[in-house]
Design a binder for these strands. Structure first.
Lengths: 116, 116
DNA sequence: ATACCGTTATGACTTTTCTGCATAACGCAT
DNA sequence: ATGCGTTATGCAGAAAAGTCATAACGGTAT
């Protein structure tokens, strides 16, 4: 995620699996955060620049694999409907944010110290 | 890469890009190490459980993107030929190994401290 | 010489995965 | 009733990854 001096770039990825299948990562984190702030899967998908189809698939996969409902959603109604995060989703999000914190900084620091 | 208590598993990935294209990562690291110890791309590919085709593609991509020759190879000759690492490849490998060192341990530690 | 062997080197095909498009259903507002 | 923006899914095409087949190479054994 961070640049270096000579054109090379260090990148890192962090995610959580369940039964060998991905359950949560940075992309899904941004998606849930965007749902929280927009109240809609559709608009959230636009913000994180993925299709609604993909966003929806991610949510379904997360819920199935974790075995808990993360996003309360309604089709039709005021403003056409919408989606909001369940409390469990907010809790999970908080934990994941804490998990990520500092790791990227460490990776970047180490990269610079090694490749110079 | 490490297991946790409740069925969830934290995983992390670290790689280097050039012009937005992946150049080096854990898989390629193991591949180069296997070439070093076996003296052959073919046998190295078997050890890391990928096809020769894929191993060869990885090497070619690495060399093109970094702009340096990493693996000296010969078709035909003693034992049918073989491949050995160039000095630049060994240097790069050493740097990458240093880069990775400790990071996974940190990730795992943080995961446990957060998800309990 | 000639056939053989294990290797590098590639092209072509197959399988899988991902992406985007089309459409339906929903329920409030006008 | 009609319209609107949303959730919800199926499906086809595209793209990526993986597999298979084959050629060329140059020592070695026959």
């Amino acid at each position: 995620m961070q640049k270096s001096h000579n054109g090379m770039e260090i990148r890192s990825k962090l995610w959580i699996e369940m039964d060998g299948e991905p359950v949560f990562g940075r992309g899904r984190r941004f998606l849930l955060e965007a749902i929280e702030s927009h109240g809609s899967i559709n608009q959230a998908a636009k913000e994180v620049d993925i299709s609604f189809r993909k966003a929806w698939s991610h949510i379904k996969a997360m819920e199935e694999r974790l075995g808990i409902k993360l996003v309360a959603r309604q089709a039709g109604g005021k403003n056409g409907g919408g989606a909001t995060l369940m409390d469990d989703a907010r809790k999970f999000l908080k934990k994941y944010e804490a998990l990520e914190k500092g790791i990227q900084a460490l990776v970047d620091k180490r990269f610079r110290s090694v490749f110079e």
